[in-house]
Design a protein around this nucleic acid. Structure first.
Length: 425
DNA sequence: ACCAACATTTCGGCGGAGTA
DNA sequence: TACTCCGCCGAAATGTTGGT
């Protein structure tokens, strides 16, 4: 607690108890840096104004603070509509009177020295904006500074930084802020910070981005562990030690990010699912009409009955539930990892215990790249192409083709058996 | 989450110079 | 004389870091 009225205590003829009580309710923002007053000159101070200043404030809240600082009487955000010039002037005059108090006029009649130190105080963003408004009304910096109670240089700086102050004022708690952004110790791992943010933005497009086409908006899941792993890699590349886990937590705060539960997008819209199901049902009806002669199972033999199951290949390691996301935005996460060659393994066995080779399904269209062909060379890759509009003729052709393939497989098996027999012998 | 230590920047106050 | 601008100095807000 700063005791700005400390020098009032020895005033002659003043009940000091009440003063001290009042001064105990002083605000935090009024800071006395210098109080150069000769003891002989206390009587020159208009102490009654001090009494008036603190008469209505009983606690330390900023609201009460504003009541003692008339510049705050005008709310910047609403001043355009609600406050007229008279109101401004009135508040400013009050400010002027209070300001005169804060300037300790030591121009003494008895002493030759002239000390005119202004009591140092801090101005909130809102107060600064109010001062700017007042200046814009009268277009006179000196008068404004005098009326408001600040130095002209201060006013100049406030006017110069008006846009930034308005921006600050619109932020949460911005109105009560004292200073603009930018102070504080500088970040040590600047490169890591920027590169990590760039990487994160590649994974998840910034909300409200106007430059990114809708088709390129990324919503990949980025977990905290994933972020740290990437941070370690970047740190190695930059040849500096990886910062602590806490650094990554602050990274999130710095860039207004947070860990949130993802809202997953549906892989296929419901209407699309309905369409596909109907199509499959029609196919079954056509097939059952086509070949009743094939046995008691209608169109199908035990060889036609397959048990097929698919499973995603876990190419990603981090299965954390939460994903990093920009604060106050919807945390949408894609159903699968879009930029990885995420694949699905399909295993199938028929009613006659015929096992089909594993099938790998990759995301996207066309053939896999030569690199990936090498990577997955150990597995035979089959690509399935099911046409929903298959007619009976196509079904028949497919059946013929399947029978031929079966023959080929059987022949190869026989050959293999013969070879193994030979090898054993 | 809280704290302390530290670094960095902004800000407030002042004096002085220039100009109309 | 009034007004405006600039530079200097020190206070303090702001932000980072590491520890508990």
């Amino acid at each position: 607690m700063y005791q700005i009225e400390e020098h009032l205590a020895p005033l002659p003829g003043v009940i000091t108890n009440s003063l001290l009580d009042e001064s105990s309710s002083d605000n935090d923002s009024s800071v006395e840096v210098m109080s150069i007053v000769d003891e002989n000159e206390y009587e020159l101070i208009k102490w009654t104004n001090y009494l008036q200043l603190n008469s209505d404030s009983d606690d330390d809240s900023d609201d009460n603070y504003s009541s003692t600082q008339p510049a705050l009487l005008v709310n910047y955000s609403s001043s355009e509509s609600s406050s007229d010039e008279e109101e401004l002037l009135q508040s400013s005059h009050q400010a002027a009177s209070s300001n005169n108090n804060s300037i300790v006029d030591t121009t003494s009649s008895s002493t030759s020295t002239t000390i005119n130190k202004r009591k140092r105080r801090q101005w909130t963003v809102n107060e600064k904006l109010n001062a700017i408004i007042y200046f814009e009304k009268n277009n006179n910096k000196s008068k404004t500074a005098n009326d408001i109670g600040c130095a002209t240089k201060q006013l100049r700086m406030w006017i110069k930084n008006k846009d930034e102050l308005i921006k600050l004022s619109s932020q949460k708690k911005g109105k009560k802020r004292m200073r603009r952004n930018g102070a504080g110790k500088k970040l040590i791992y600047v490169d890591l910070d920027s590169r990590l943010l760039t990487w994160y933005r590649q994974k998840r497009t910034a909300p409200g981005s106007t430059t990114t086409p809708i088709t390129d908006i990324r919503k990949e899941k980025v977990t905290f562990r994933y972020l740290q792993r990437r941070g370690r890699q970047i740190s190695q590349e930059l040849n500096h030690p990886c910062p602590s886990s806490k650094w990554f937590g602050r990274f999130l705060v710095r860039h207004r990010l947070s860990l949130q539960r993802p809202k997953r997008q549906q892989k296929i819209p419901l209407d699309e699912v309905h369409q596909k199901a109907t199509s499959f049902y029609n196919y079954l009806r056509r097939a059952s009409r086509w070949a009743p002669k094939r046995g008691p199972m209608g169109a199908f033999t035990p060889r036609d009955v397959f048990n097929m199951d698919e499973s995603p290949l876990a190419l990603f390691g981090d299965q954390a539930k939460r994903s990093i996301n920009d604060i106050n935005t919807c945390n949408e996460v894609e159903g699968c990892l879009s930029n990885k060659r995420f694949c699905t393994v399909i295993l199938t066995v028929s009613g006659e215990d015929q096992r089909v080779d594993p099938v790998l399904l990759f995301k996207g269209k066309g053939h896999i790249s030569p690199n990936e062909q090498k990577q997955y060379a150990n597995v035979d890759c089959l690509s399935l192409n099911i046409n929903e509009d298959d007619d009976e003729e196509q079904i028949q052709n497919a059946a013929t083709l399947a029978a031929e393939q079966d023959k080929i497989i059987l022949n190869e098996k026989n050959k293999q058996l013969k070879l193994t027999d030979l090898w054993k012998k």
